[in-house]
Structures are given as C-alpha cells and as structure tokens.
C-alpha cells in the first residue's frame, strides 16, 4: 500500500466518528437547540453497539441498536429542554455525566473481550487500484454512510422545504410559530436525529475503529464534534472539511514523530526544515494545535458579523414556549 494512501485511510477512520456526530449536532443546532450531551450519547451508542454485536454476532445489528439507543437517550434531553424548557447547557452536561456513568455500568460484562469488527468493502478490481483503490473502494461501511449522511443533510437543509422549515425554526422560533410551524415537534425530531447520529458515531468507535468496549472510550471526541459544528459555521460541507482537517492533524503529528529524517534528504529543503522543526517541538504543544486552531478559526469566522449572521441559527440555545 502506498504510504500516502495508507495515511489517508487512517485519517478517514479517525475522522468518521467526528464527522457523524458533528453532522447530527449540526442539524440539532440548526433547529435552534444546543445539546452539549454529545459525549454521553456517543458513549451510550458505543456500549450498546458493542453489546448487541457481541450478543448477536452481527455488527449491523449493533449499529442499529446504537442508533436507536442514541435517539431514545436524546429524548431525555428533548423532554427536559423542549417540554419542560430547562436550561440547555446544564441539561446537556447532565446528559453527558449520566451517559458516562450508565455506559460504564452497562459495559461491565463486556470489558476484556475483543469485539467483532465490521468488514471493510471489497470490490474485485476496484479496491486494488493503485493510490485510490483502498481509499475509495476499500473502507468500512460506516465511512460510506458518513459521506451519504453529509450529502443527505446538506441536501435536506438547503434543498428541501422541510429543511427550510427546520432552519426557520432555528432562526426565529417566534415567527415560525406564528406561521403555524410546530416548533417543538420539529425540535424533538432534530434532537432525536442528533442522538441517533451520536449513537452511530459511538458504534463506529466500538465496532470499527477499535472493536472493544472500555469505559470512557470516546476520550473527548464528543466535545471535538461540538467544536467542529461551530468551526464549520453550521455548514455540512465545512463540518466535513473540519473533521478531516482535525483527523489529518492528529494523524500527521503521529506520523511525523515516527518518520526518520535521515531517510528524507531528497525532500525539498523547506519541507525538510519544517519537519525538523516540528520534530523539535515538545509533543504537548503539537497536541494542543487542534484546539488552538479551532479557537483561531472561531475568531476568523465570527469576526465577519455579516457572514456569521447569515449562518448562525439566531435562536440557538434559547428556550421556546408557545404563547397562544
């Protein structure tokens, strides 16, 4: 396998859970709801996906279970924030806290058992193509699903009437309600979609990425997904770019550590110097680059108020109670 292709394949696997979870959260936020419970929902998806796969032997059933559990679990958040109009930030944090604990309790019997990994696609003739074969035709099914998801969400939000309705709910729930749009019902559906996506992202971790269950195995990926949504200024294709950029930075850092500079003298001087410089930087600083980059991008996209206004759901995080 060509090394660049190999690295890109690794990047794809690392980016997919971020992409799926962030795309789900994007729809939630576009409807005007901020759910900080992504990490907790992902953990619930990861543990239920692993458990069902282990019990039935079918990874697809595990994925299905994770999607359902994620959606049902998010209903708890929906009921509190939408029906009982509780504070969304606090409720989302509680959802994460509860998810960490519950998934740990549920997962006890499954610790220390290797899971069943979902098999990757194989198309004779195509998967073996040089450079791009493995990348385009040899990934795991959830990779393709994630791409379909982005296309679908992008089309739904900006190409359909229902998507327009959802966005109008997020932009101004007052006028949407006045127009007779069922604000609360749409938000419930959006929250459940976000939960299903987070569950799916969790299942990707426990069934594809590292087929095993361990407590807290998301290791903060839910929070990264949340950051990506804002990073992308609530645009699906920018979420895609952000997730892959983040994955690329992480994987590149590991690869640069492993690379032996003395074998790379044929590289152009500037590239060589850059690699040497990166290798000399303490790894803690390299590890903090993605977080700093997110802050920088946040600043860059938010300083242009007109652009932000155009994309930001104006009702984000604000409670809505219909007055009749």
């Amino acid at each position: 396998m060509d090394i660049a292709e190999a690295i890109l394949t690794t990047v794809a696997t690392a980016s997919t859970p971020l992409l799926i979870a962030a795309t789900g959260e994007l729809v939630v936020e576009r409807s005007g709801v901020l759910n900080l419970g992504v990490e907790g929902m992902m953990l619930m998806g990861a543990v239920s996906g692993f458990a069902v796969t282990a019990l039935t032997g079918y990874p697809w059933l595990g994925v299905l279970a994770a999607v359902i559990v994620g959606a049902v679990y998010s209903l708890l958040f929906g009921f509190l924030t939408l029906t009982l109009v509780t504070n969304q930030v606090a409720t989302g944090l509680a959802l994460t806290l509860l998810g960490v604990g519950l998934s740990g309790l549920i997962g006890v019997p499954f610790v220390g058992h290797p899971g069943i990994q979902m098999t990757s696609l194989y198309i004779p003739g195509l998967t073996g193509l040089p450079y791009v074969g493995k990348l385009l035709f040899g990934e795991d099914p959830l990779f393709y699903l994630s791409i379909v998801l982005v296309i679908g969400v992008s089309w739904f939000l900006f190409g359909t009437r229902a998507g327009l309705t959802l966005r109008s709910v997020g932009d101004n729930h007052g006028s949407a309600h006045a127009l007779g749009i069922p604000v609360i019902r749409i938000r419930y559906l959006a929250v459940m979609f976000g939960g299903a996506c987070a569950g799916l992202a969790g299942a990707q971790l426990s069934i594809v990425y590292t087929p095993q269950w361990v407590e807290n195995m998301t290791a903060g990926r839910g929070w990264i997904a949340l950051a990506l949504v804002v990073f992308a200024s609530w645009r699906p294709w920018r979420v895609f770019a952000g997730a892959y950029l983040f994955g690329l930075l992480t994987i590149a850092e590991l690869n640069i550590q492993a690379v032996d500079l003395s074998t790379l003298h044929q590289l152009p001087g500037a590239v060589y110097d850059l690699l040497a410089l990166i290798k000399a930087i303490p790894s803690q600083f390299l590890s903090s680059i993605p977080y700093l980059a997110t802050v920088v991008v946040l600043v860059v996209i938010s300083r242009n108020r007109r652009l932000t206004m155009m994309n930001t759901p104006a009702s984000l995080g604000r409670a809505f109670v219909p007055d009749r």
Binding site: M1, Y209, V214, L254
Partner: peptide, 19 residues
C-alpha cells in the same frame, strides 16, 4: 501523551505500520 486512549493508540499503531 496519554496512558489510555484506545483511538489514539490505534492511530499511532497504524502510523507506525504505514512507516
């Protein structure tokens, strides 16, 4: 930079194998 992060450990393993 972590004792326990299955995802990152897997990524590191892949990076090493790729090289």
């Amino acid at each position: 930079n972590s004792w326990f992060d299955p995802g990152k450990e897997a990524d590191a393993a892949k990076a090493l194998i790729d090289q």
